[in-house]
């Protein structure tokens, strides 16, 4: 191998790692270039949603299931951290972990019965779950603060260092997001990930290949709930205030839209989907006012023309074209 071939080989072999490193470097330098707190606030929100969407994409895109209820797990994380730190003065880091464990248990208890359902029935069941959770947030006001929300949530801190300004939050939240990204990328490149992809393709075939389909679905559901819970905790500590609006069914469908835009089973696409849907209202006031219409419209258009999702759909078309062209070249 020549030097150039060696370099190319190294790049192909480690392309995922290199992409992750490149993105990390970019994020490391970003606050030096862009120090507008408003902009950083938005990119931080993108990072928080990315964590939820990465988990949800494993469940929807990889395991081939559907959930219209992940705003509930996101909300459980947020309210869990809020209540634990304010009412019980638990250390925020510890609270984050305890809440994630509790959310995992809740997801397990809910997941075992409802993941026997599939398709529309599963969509309805998860939607119902989100409705119930949102109603509890609104009605149980002595604990949740009701419709007016829950305020006074402390910032996260290490020793004396507090994560309260946008720049420090940027590093904190993106660290979590990059870890979520790395875990997801690792998972889908493993045998477990291929088992999930098989599950999304065809359950009978997956079982015939040795995938414990029922078990695998529940596991991914729990995993995605844990991701959502951590994102929720970060959300609560970032804004020091949470209200039920952030966790209603529209929030839940927005998360699904982010997955669909990014593409079913596309890990990198998840970041793109989270970014696009978070940024849209910032770009145009029109989107702000008619947000739900616009999001609904995007969802319908993407599902009609690229049912695998925007990014994945385009990549699939590219791969097919490339393969066919290479065959033509080989024949010529």
């Amino acid at each position: 191998m020549t030097g150039k071939q060696k370099i190319l080989y190294f790049i192909t072999l480690h392309r995922t790692g290199l992409w992750v490193t490149a993105l990390s470097l970019l994020l490391l330098l970003f606050p030096l270039v862009e120090d507008n707190p408003y902009t950083l606030g938005i990119t931080n929100l993108i990072a928080i949603y990315s964590i939820v969407v990465l988990g949800l994409n494993l469940f929807i895109g990889y395991a081939g299931q559907i959930s219209l209820g992940h705003a509930a797990f996101f909300g459980l994380g947020a309210y869990g951290s809020a209540i634990a730190t304010v009412n019980f003065s638990v250390n925020p880091w510890l609270a984050m972990v305890i809440v994630a464990v509790l959310v995992a248990l809740v997801a397990l208890l809910i997941g075992i019965p409802i993941l026997r359902l599939s398709g529309h029935y599963l969509a309805m069941a998860t939607l119902g779950m989100n409705f119930v959770f949102h109603t509890i947030l609104l009605q149980w006001d002595e604990v949740t603060g009701g419709p007016s929300g829950f305020s006074g949530i402390p910032s996260l801190s290490i020793g004396e260092y507090e994560f309260w300004d946008e720049v420090s939050l940027h590093y904190l939240i993106w660290t979590f997001a990059m870890l979520a990204l790395l875990f997801s990328l690792n998972l889908v490149r493993s045998g477990v990930g291929r088992g999930l992809a098989a599950l999304a393709g065809d359950e009978t075939a997956a079982a015939a290949l040795g995938v414990n389909t029922r078990n695998a679905k529940v596991k991914v559901f729990v995993l995605s709930a844990i991701f959502a819970s951590f994102a929720g905790s970060l959300f609560a500590h970032t804004y020091s205030f949470v209200s039920p609006d952030s966790f209603d069914i529209f929030a839940a469908t927005d998360m699904v839209i982010m997955v669909v835009i990014g593409g079913m089973g596309s890990i990198w696409g998840s970041l793109f989907g989270a970014a696009l849907i978070t940024l849209l209202p910032e770009w145009m006031d029109l989107f702000e006012t008619y947000k739900d219409f616009v999001h609904g419209g995007i969802l319908v258009l993407v599902l009609m023309f690229l049912p695998q999702g925007l990014v994945t759909g385009l990549i699939d078309i590219g791969k097919t074209k490339l393969a066919l062209r290479r065959q033509k070249d080989a024949e010529a």
Partner: peptide, 10 residues
């Protein structure tokens, strides 16, 4: 590779 799912570690 999905044919080797059982050996990939679970």
């Amino acid at each position: 590779l999905t044919g080797l799912t059982c050996e990939g570690g679970s």
